Computed example of a mutant assay.
Amino acid sequence: MSVHRFTSAFATDLEDYLGFKEQMGFYGRSRIVYLQRFDAYCTSHRLRVFNRATVEGWVFSELGRSATSRSWMSYIRDFGRWMRTHRHPYAYVLSDQWKAGFTRTRPYLLTSEEIEKFFTAAARVKAASPWAWQAVAFFSLMHCCGLRTGEARLLLASEVDLDQRCLDIIDSKARRSRRLPITDEVATVLAVCDQASRSRFGPREPFFISSTGAPVCPASVGVIFNRIWDQAGLRRPTGGRQPQPYAFRHHFAYANLERWMKDGADITAMLPYLARYMGHATFDSTYYYIHTSPDFMDSYADVVAESHALLPEVGFK
C-alpha cells in the first residue's frame, strides 16, 4: 500500500525515492505535494513510461497553475536522476533549459540611526503579549548574530547556554545545525528575557514564547516589527524596498564585511567564517551580501573572482 497514496505506474518508484530522500534528511512537504500532482497526472493520462513526453507533458500542465515560480521543477528533475541511477538507465531527466532566471532582490539597508531608534523603541514597546519583554532579545539575535527569522522564532530554551555564551541552531535550513558563540552583551539581553519568561510561565520549551505558551508564530514577528518601527517614528519608503525583520540578518553580514575591509583584513580569508556562522550551505549565498553594500562593492568587486583562494572547511567550537 502506498504511504503517500500514489496510484500511477510510478507509485512504487515514487515511494522508494521519497524514502531515499528521507534517509538523506529531506522531509519537505512541498516535494511530496508536487510529486503527488505528477502521480495524479500520470494516472489520469495512463502514462507508464518515464520519458520526455511524460515529464514535459506534466510540466506544461503544471505551469498553468504555478507560472510565478519554477522551483518545483527541481523535484521532478531530481526524481528523474534517481530513476536513471536506480531503476531505468534511460529515464528522462528534465533539461536545465526549463530553469528560470533568478534575480535577487536588494534588501532594505538599515542605517545606524534606524537601528538605534528601533531598539530604543523595542525596549518600551506597547504589547499585551510576551513581546513586551522579549522583542529586544529576539531582534538582537537577528542583528548581532545574523539569525534567520525562523531560527530565532524556533529557538528552544535548552539550546541557549548563557554560561558557555553560545547558541545551538538545530536542523535549520536544509536540516543544517551549527553552534554560535555570543558576546557578553547578547548573553545579558537573553538572560533578562529568560528571567522574565520564567517568572510568568515557569520552565518552558521555546525560548521565545507566545501568550499561549507556544513558539511565536511567523506572522507575529512581522506585526511586532512594524509596531516597533512605527512607535520609533521611523519613516517608511513610499515605494521600493521596505523595512522588514530579515533586514537585521542582512545588516549583520554586510556590517562585518565592511568592518573587515576597514581593518584591512583579508576578506576572502574571512568569508568562510561568515558563511559558517550564518549557516550557508555554499559560499554563493555569502557572496550575495557583498552586493548589498554599494560602498563595499566598489572596493571589493574582485572578491567573487578570488573564491578559489578561500580557506578549507572551518567551524566554531
Rank of each mutant, 00 (worst) to 15 (best):
L14A: 01
H4P: 00
Y288K: 04
E159F: 06
W133M: 06
P272E: 05
D16Y: 05
D266R: 12
G240A: 09
L110R: 08
G150F: 04
V160A: 04
R87S: 03
H86L: 10
Y41K: 01
L147R: 04
R65E: 10
F26I: 12
G146A: 04
A135D: 02
I224R: 04
Q164I: 11
A232E: 02
H143G: 03
R179C: 08
L180I: 08
A219M: 09
T43K: 10
S211K: 12
L35D: 01
R241A: 15
K173Q: 10
P89N: 07
I182L: 01
K317L: 10
A305H: 10
A281G: 10
R70F: 11
L154I: 02
F50G: 00
K173L: 09
C217A: 14
I169P: 00
F248Y: 09
V186F: 07
Q164M: 13
P89F: 03
F316L: 12
T286S: 10
G233E: 05
T111G: 08
S2W: 04
R48M: 13
P215M: 09
R235C: 11
T12K: 13
D161F: 12
I169R: 02
D163E: 15
D168L: 11
V125P: 00
I32Q: 05
G240R: 07
S74P: 01
A301T: 07
G239H: 14
R176W: 05
L154Q: 08
Y34F: 15
S293C: 09
E159G: 07
N51A: 11
T282C: 08
T7L: 13
E15S: 05
E15I: 05
A91T: 04
V59C: 06
E15K: 02
H88T: 14
P107F: 05
I169S: 00
A309Q: 15
D284G: 11
A135H: 01
F208H: 01
V49Q: 11
